[in-house]
Amino acid sequence: MNLAELVYLGNFEEASKITLKISPQQIYESLREKAHEEIDIVFYGFFVHLLLHRPKKDLAELHHNVSLLLFLDLRSINGAYDLAEYHIKEAIKYDPEDEDYHRYLEHLKSIPR
């Protein structure tokens, strides 16, 4: 079973084992298609699970990726844009020098709600 299927079934423990071998960006890429198809909050829940269990060095990129997931793939869920903005702000807290994070935050703020 692949990562997206494990997450969709709520098997976070097995899914987490897979994520130990891949980067936060690869995690996002592995989940985004299924998240977009299913539009299920379980994918956000899995990222929250990772944020609680991954090393601090991964947190900026994880927050960035969960923000992308919310903004691009789960946008039809109420509150997704607000959560996306929250997570990119958290990414900036962990890596304030990353200009891409700052540009992405400005982009989110420019979107009418």
Results as ranks from 00 to 15, higher is better:
60 A>P: 06
20 L>G: 06
13 E>M: 14
79 G>T: 03
96 P>R: 00
85 E>N: 12
45 G>Q: 08
26 Q>K: 15
38 E>D: 14
53 H>S: 10
3 L>V: 06
42 V>R: 03
105 L>T: 08
112 P>T: 09
104 Y>A: 05
14 E>N: 12
2 N>M: 13
78 N>D: 15
87 H>W: 04
95 D>S: 04
24 P>C: 01
29 E>T: 14
48 V>P: 01
113 R>E: 09
89 K>L: 10
110 S>V: 07
67 S>I: 07
40 D>K: 04
28 Y>F: 12
4 A>I: 07
28 Y>I: 06
102 H>R: 12
104 Y>E: 08
79 G>Y: 07
14 E>K: 14
17 K>I: 10
111 I>H: 10
25 Q>I: 10
79 G>W: 05
93 K>A: 03
71 F>E: 15
68 L>R: 15
18 I>D: 01
109 K>N: 09
84 A>Q: 07
83 L>E: 04
45 G>C: 11
88 I>V: 13
50 L>N: 01
105 L>F: 05
83 L>A: 06
7 V>M: 06
49 H>Y: 15
104 Y>R: 12
104 Y>K: 11
82 D>M: 14
66 V>S: 02
75 R>Y: 15
102 H>F: 09
58 D>W: 04
56 K>F: 09
62 L>I: 01
16 S>K: 12
71 F>V: 15
99 E>D: 13
91 A>E: 00
46 F>R: 00
112 P>S: 10
98 D>A: 05
68 L>Y: 12
37 E>G: 15
10 G>W: 01
23 S>Q: 04
34 K>F: 07
30 S>W: 06
96 P>M: 02
73 D>Q: 10
63 H>I: 02
92 I>M: 02
